[in-house]
Each structure stands twice: as C-alpha cells, then as structure tokens.
Design a protein around this nucleic acid. Sequence first.
DNA 1: TATGAATGAGAGTTCATTCAT
DNA 2: AATGAATGAACTCTCATTCAT
Lengths: 199, 199, 199, 199
Amino acid sequence: MGKVDENKKKKKEALFNTAYDLFTTKGINSTAISDIVENAGVAKGTFYLYFKDKYDIKNKLIAHKTNELFAAAGDALEASGIRGLEEQLIFIIEHVFHALTANKALLNFISKNLVMGALRSTLLTGENSGSDIYEKFLMLVDQDEHDYNDVDVMLFTIVELAGSAGYNSILYGEPLPIEEYKPFLYRCVRLIVKSHRAG
Amino acid sequence: MGKVDENKKKKKEALFNTAYDLFTTKGINSTAISDIVENAGVAKGTFYLYFKDKYDIKNKLIAHKTNELFAAAGDALEASGIRGLEEQLIFIIEHVFHALTANKALLNFISKNLVMGALRSTLLTGENSGSDIYEKFLMLVDQDEHDYNDVDVMLFTIVELAGSAGYNSILYGEPLPIEEYKPFLYRCVRLIVKSHRAG
Amino acid sequence: MGKVDENKKKKKEALFNTAYDLFTTKGINSTAISDIVENAGVAKGTFYLYFKDKYDIKNKLIAHKTNELFAAAGDALEASGIRGLEEQLIFIIEHVFHALTANKALLNFISKNLVMGALRSTLLTGENSGSDIYEKFLMLVDQDEHDYNDVDVMLFTIVELAGSAGYNSILYGEPLPIEEYKPFLYRCVRLIVKSHRAG
Amino acid sequence: MGKVDENKKKKKEALFNTAYDLFTTKGINSTAISDIVENAGVAKGTFYLYFKDKYDIKNKLIAHKTNELFAAAGDALEASGIRGLEEQLIFIIEHVFHALTANKALLNFISKNLVMGALRSTLLTGENSGSDIYEKFLMLVDQDEHDYNDVDVMLFTIVELAGSAGYNSILYGEPLPIEEYKPFLYRCVRLIVKSHRAG
DNA sequence: TATGAATGAGAGTTCATTCAT
DNA sequence: AATGAATGAACTCTCATTCAT
C-alpha cells in the first residue's frame, strides 16, 4: 500500500471513529458535519470524498458496529466449544449483552436505529468477508442433533425478542435489571427453540 | 366552555392533527414548525403558546396515539366477552395489529420512536382518564382462573416480542407477512403465559 | 399603511437597491447574497422572505429597470408633442440611449441579460400600471397619418437593431462612438419604417 | 508530431469537446470543472495545464465555434459562385441561420455570450490561419460592382441586426418563426446595403 | 506531463425562536 | 391570546485550486 493510500485510509478512519464518538455522545441530530471534520482534523470537503452525507456514515457505522459485535460473539462461541443449539444461542446473546452492558452508548446508538436489522445489516457493509452471522446461525441449527421447522421464523423471533427486551432491560432496567431478567429471557429462548423442534 | 377557550382548543387541535399528518407523511426530521403552522392555519408564534418545541409535540402525539390504539382494543375486548388470559392477550394483539396493518404510517411513526414504551407512555399524556392500559392488563391477569408469577416480566416480554416482531412483519413482511407469522407469534405468546403460571 | 407594512416595504426596497448596486458594480456572479444583505443592513433570512433566490431578484430588477427606462422615454415623448411615427420612434431611442450613455452600468446589466426582451419584459413586473410600452408603441403606429403592414415585425426589427447596435456603440464605441453612429442608425430606422408603409 | 505531443493534443481536445457538450447541455453556471474533467477522462489538475479557468475555456470555445460557423459559410459561398454583394451577404446569413436552426444549443451558447462579437471574435483564437471572416467580408465589398461608403458601419449594422433578430426568431419564434421572418430581414439587409452605396 | 486527494472558504438556504404590534 | 416579520446562527454541500507524488 502506497503512502497515498495509507493516508486515505487514515483519514477515512479518522472520520469514521470521530463520527462514532460524536453520534454516541451528542446524538446524531445534534452532531454537525462540521463537528465531525473538526474533531477528525480533516477539511470539510474531505468528508464528502468518503461519505455521501451524515446518514451515509451513520448507516455504515451501524452496520460496521453490529458486524463487529456478532463477529466477536461468534469467535468466542467457537473458542468455547459449547454444543447444543439452545446453549449456543444463549451464549451468543450473553456475549452480545455483555458487550452492550459495558457500552451503553453503543447499545443506544445501534438500537435506536435498527434494533432488529442486526442480522441482515451485515449485507450493508462491504467488509463481510466470512463474517456473515446469519450464515453462522444457520450452520449452528444445521449441526444440532435435532431438526428444526421454520428456522428463519425461529431465529427472527429470538433475535427480535432478545434485542427488544435486552434494549430496555440493559438501558433502563425495565422491567428488571438485565441480570435479573436474563433467566426469564433464556427460559423463553429455550421454549421457542423447543417449539420449533421437528418430529 | 367560553368562546375563547373553545377557540384555544380548536387551535391546539389543529396543530396536533396537522403535526401528526406531516410527521407520518414526511417524517419528523423533514417537518419544520413552519410546515405545521402553515398547514394548521395558525401563526408561527401560536405554536409556542401550546408546545415547547417539535419534540414536545412529537412525544405528546405518540402517547396520544398509543393510548387511542390500546383503548380501542380494550373496549373491543370488553364488548367481545372473551374469557381466558391467553385468548384475551391475543385478542388485544390481534386488534392492535389490525389497526396498524391498516395504518402503516402510524405504525412507522410510533415504532420508530418508542416501540416498547407503548404501555407506560400513557403516563406522559395528561389525558389518561381511566384509559390506563397497563392497569387493564393487570386486571385481566387478576381475573384469570390461574395465578401468575412475575406478572410484570410476563407482560413486558409479550409486549416487546409482539411489538418488535409485529413491526417488522407488518411493515416489511419479514420474516413472513403478518398473517403467516401470527400463528408462530401466538404460539409463542401462549408459551410465555404458561411458563409464568404459578403452581 | 401601517408601521409594519411601511417597514416591510423599506426592507424590500433596501434589498432591491443594494442588489442593483452590487450587480452593476461587481457583476451578478461575484455578488453573494451575503453581500446584498450585509449592505442592505438586513438579516440573511429576510432576503428569502422577499425573493426566491439571486436570480429572482435579478429578473425583477431587470424588468423594473427596463420599465423605468421606457416609461421615462414615453413620458418625455408626450411632453414633447412630437408628431410622426419616424420622429417619435427616434425620439424614444434617443431618450433611452441618452439615459444609458449616462449610465453604462445599467446598460451593461440590462443588455447582458435580455437585450431584446426589453419590450415584453414589462409583463414580468407586477407594477405596469399604465406603463406598458408596447401598447404605447402600437398606439403611436395607430395614430400616424400612414397605415403600416406587419407592425409587430417592424417594431421588433427596430428594437433589435437599436438595442444590439446601441449596446456595442455606447459601451465599446464599435464600430463608431454612439454620437457618430446615430445618423446611420436613424437612417436605417427610417428605411425600416418606410418599408412597412402600406399602399 | 511525437507521441507525447499527440497525447497532449488529445487531452486538450477531449477537454474542449466535453466542455462544449456540457456548456450547451447544462449551461455554463451549472457546469463544474469536475464535470468537465470527469467526462473528458482526465485528471483535475490536467485542466489547469491547458486552461486558466472555466471562463478561459468558454471564451476559446465561443471563438472557435463562431469561426467554424463562418468559415463553413464562406467556403460554401465560394463553392456557390454567387455574385453581387447583397446576394452574397444574404447567402452567408442564410447558411449560418441554417446551421444554427439545426443546432439551437450552439445558438444559445454563442448568443447568450457574445451575440455580436461574432466577427471580431476570430481574433481571440490563435488558429485563424486564413480564416478571418471579416477580411472575407471586406473582400466581397471590394469585388462588388458598386462602391460603398462606411463599409465598417454597414457590415456592423447588418451583422447586429441579423444576429439579434435571428437569435430571437430561431430560438423563440419571435416575432415570427425564422422562415417567415427571413423575407423581412433580407429586405432590410438590401435596404441597408443600398443606403451605403456611393454616388 | 499527469495525477487526484486534499483543501477550506464560502455559497445558498433553512428554521427555531423572539417580540413588537 | 394571537400574530407574523425579522432574525442570524447553523446547516449542508460545492468547487476552484493546490501540490506531493
């Protein structure tokens, strides 16, 4: 990679990181592009070299962060050697919840914008080299000792429930703080999985 | 009510209705206060007599619309004479889904802003004269032939799931069109209810 | 007229006059709206209360100035009591040329933008209370002792020639300074008039 | 010509042609240098190697196109063998009008910028190797069987009239479509020529 | 000679808010 | 209570120009 390309990447990343910081801190509406470029230390025009507008960088940011989140969970799952679909799904939820509990600004940013699009949003980013989480989910289902009906529906339902309930529980402690709510949620996940079991 | 007070109410309602129309049509970000007052046929300054700013009217609008939605569902439930918690909750979901399917703009408006706050949002509005939906939910639970543990958690989980999944299914047909998704959702609701049954 | 309306008119006129000054001094392209409002002593937003954009004020300005120019010539003609179509047309040209020679910035401004639209441009302005120059031309033709064929063509040809040739002669002295060119131009005007005489 | 020089010429011509296309299509004000270089397939910096700015290329373009137009008319005149100043001038006007009627974008481009500079604009271009139209006009006058006074004035008047009236007639059909206006214009040209005849 | 990433001033425009009437 | 003219800061986005490669 030449000096120029290196510099380009550096600038784009500076914009990306700065935008993330400001979006999570001040909110998207209150973040002006001037703020982003100023903090990133680039000229205003440079922003438009890499992004169409504020919403372009926002979308790319969400896709990127979501991707990161699930990719990390997937990697951890692999390292853990856990078996059994129920346990695996709960492990992933656990892992993601853990990250989001530690980083509520991120949760707020992602969830306010596309709570559920999480899974498919990887499509938006151009960087999904092997990191496609949905594929991994399907693989887990496939490798389980049981067969399942309506896999898409099952996964969708679990993700929606976990995403929506987790959002409120982690961020607002409603109806219970997340640690207290988890048992209920996981019981529910198990029920959903079992209800889709074939035979 | 005097003529003056009548006039006041009329102006406020004009602003309220116009704001709703514009928010659902053009989106909140693209709706300027000028748009609202122009379409409502009042002067710009008048807006500030009744609302603090755009977000004030937005919040009041969401609370009001959510309230309306659940109040209608509650009334219909009463009229139906249906018995049994599972059936009653599903009836309410069915009723709300029906209304939102017919009015996707409303679904989009409410959900984009506080999918889940639905229940508690009645607190925001000053107009909840006997229309508190949450109270009604608790009453239904109370009157059921079974006893339930952790009622709050149960209701929260159901509402989050129905809200989040319904939003995607109705609006985007994901993972299935709403009519096809309902059987899965309702099965899930029954499972959740049963899992909270005491004894 | 109330205080408010008076103030409105004053602001609008300030913008109008300032824009004219700047357009003729610096050119339209180099005149920013900021320049106009700054010099007019009003806020930027006020500009957009009265004009759509820079080109709106430009067009209105051209129409207005052209109108003024011909209205003055028409009035002077009336006062002079001159008879005979040839003499009358030449009187008007003479009068307009005189004004433009004394105000080359105006000539430059008008001509660069719609040399010939001069006559019909009165339509653009809303202020043509009895000042419609084209009507006056037709009246002059009508009152002449001779009859004329293709009056529209005749007037158009004269105006185009006088406008285009006058522009170059007054502004650049090409092919001769205006005073030396006039005899040729007027001879030409007479030829055109005569060539349209009926019978 | 070496390979390098050839390449240079090719780039310059690409810029020239692209600029012309864009200017006539989108207008000068709305054409950015980025547009030109992008469509021409060269780098932004390259533009500044050959032209000072947008107005530099615009002027050179107008001069070039005007030159082309009259050169073609002159060549056609020669080929036609027509005799007599009146007929020759009308032939040239006819030829140019024909080209401009077929290419209104070109008429619009040239006329909006320097209707009348047509003749002398050849001076601007560096390429007038023997193509000087004004010289050719003088030659035609010289070769005519009659003598003429104030030849400059005569030619100027004719060109101004034809240019200005032709512009409006061809582009806007005012006061008549060009084909219907021509008889009047040509009668006028003959009158002007005759009025300059000596003796 | 040719490139094109980077610049940054400044353009036009919007709009929430104020306040004299 | 109601108005709406006026404000002016803040906004997004453009673009001619530079200069290191």
